[in-house]
Amino acid sequence: MKIDHSQPLEYSTEQNRLNILGFWIFLGAEIMLFATLFTSYFVYEDRIGSGPSGADIFEITPVLIETIILLTSSFTIGLAVHAMRINRTKAMTVFLGITLLLGAAFLATEIYEFNHYYHVGATLQTSGFTGILLTTLGTHGAHVTLGLFWGTMILMQIKKRGLTPQIANKSFIFSLYWHFLDVVWIFIFSFIYLKGMM
């Protein structure tokens, strides 16, 4: 395997560069995946049957907490990549760890939020609206959950093997994934919550 030392570690082999481009293309597909969910959300937004509407059930506090947590975690994963590029492995793992903790906090808040919906009678089955709401949030949440496992695996590998070109590559790709989830959340925040509450 040829290693090109003029490039950052995560770009240093041909396979690494392929992986990064491949992941960007995957993100293109993810954009369409969420676009389909948003499309459906907008179509069902007012189709509430006899169930509650968005304005009835949304609460600003947990939503704000989630938003700030996710924005911060997107910042810290950016710092992790930066630390990786200046060869500060220790700092990198710390930032990555913080990111994962923030991710877990996000999930906890989201579980609280879902629980709240359940108690006010907005379940998956209640109406077209509640169904698509929970499916959209749930798909994002599932992505975050997957990200938590993935990030943990990467942490374990760094502990075990140090920052090899492969692991640097995985970490960088993980950061792309995490930023992307943040972007999706911004759209959820703006066009599901804020639009629903205003």
């Binding site: 389909t36 969910l37 459906s40 077209g128 169904g131």
Partner: peptide, 26 residues
């Protein structure tokens, strides 16, 4: 990805009783 979501919604309707493609409850 569009098919993925559509099939998921269909699965939910048929197996979890959601109301995406029904004619009731929105």
């Amino acid at each position: 990805p569009v098919l993925t979501i559509a099939l998921l919604m269909g699965t939910f309707d048929r197996q979890f009783g959601t109301n995406f493609f029904t004619s009731m409850n929105g």
